[in-house]
Structure formats: C-alpha cells, structure tokens
Simulated assay, not measured.
Amino acid sequence: MTQAPLDVRAQTARLVVEVVTEILPGVDPQLIGGKRHLKDLGADSVDRVEIIAALLDRTRVDAPMSDFSDLPDIDSLIDFLSGAPR
C-alpha cells in the first residue's frame, strides 16, 4: 500500500477520533491512535463493527468488513482508510 498524502491522513485521523469518541464517549481523544487497537480503548466486537461501518460510510471507502480484521492498530486503520479507493 502506498502512503497517503499527509493532509488526507491527518483528515482521516481526525475522523477516526471523531467516530471513536461518538461510539465510545468515555475515551480520551488523545489515546486514539498509535499502536493501540480499538480493543485497548474498551471497544467490544459490536463497538468495533459500528466504528468501522461509520468510518466506511463517512469516508465513502468501498471495502468489506473482513479487510479490517487484520489491521493491528489504529495507525494501520488510518493508513488503510487514507489510501483506500473511494
């Protein structure tokens, strides 16, 4: 996967923080990113599906949910969404 331009990645990172804090309102936005996984933030399997579905909808990325199961952390999620075809 090629690296997305910084502005696209930064916008995607902000969107991930926005969606995660909507679905997990008790999470400190500063903890959303890096090598943490959504599970590390307290997201159960239903929360994770809701987060991914909302991100797919808002980014207009066309990817199956199964593509997200192998992403090891939030940075990988941001990179995937930033570089995915829309």
Rank of each mutant, 00 (worst) to 15 (best):
Q3N: 05
A4H: 14
L6W: 09
L6G: 08
L6I: 09
L6P: 09
D7A: 08
D7G: 04
V8H: 14
V8R: 15
R9D: 04
R9K: 12
Q11W: 03
Q11G: 10
T12G: 03
T12R: 06
A13Y: 02
A13I: 00
A13L: 00
R14T: 04
R14Q: 11
V16H: 00
E18F: 10
E18W: 10
V20Y: 09
T21W: 05
T21L: 06
T21A: 07
E22A: 10
E22N: 08
E22Q: 12
E22L: 07
L24R: 04
G26D: 03
G26C: 00
G26S: 03
V27H: 05
V27F: 02
V27N: 04
D28Q: 00
D28N: 08
P29I: 09
P29M: 11
Q30T: 13
Q30D: 12
G33Q: 01
G34A: 13
K35G: 11
K35F: 09
K35A: 11
R36A: 11
L38T: 01
L38Y: 01
L38R: 00
K39R: 10
K39T: 06
L41Y: 01
G42A: 03
A43K: 04
D44P: 04
S45N: 07
S45D: 05
S45A: 09
D47C: 07
V49S: 06
V49L: 10
V49M: 06
E50P: 06
I51D: 02
I51A: 01
I51V: 11
I52K: 01
I52Y: 02
A54R: 06
L55K: 09
L56F: 00
R58G: 06
T59N: 02
T59V: 08
R60N: 15
R60D: 14
R60I: 09
R60S: 15
D62K: 15
M65H: 14
D67K: 13
D67Q: 13
F68Q: 03
F68W: 02
S69E: 15
L71D: 04
L71F: 07
P72L: 13
D73W: 07
D75G: 07
S76L: 14
S76G: 15
I78H: 04
I78T: 08
D79V: 07
F80L: 09
A84Y: 13
P85F: 15
R86Y: 11
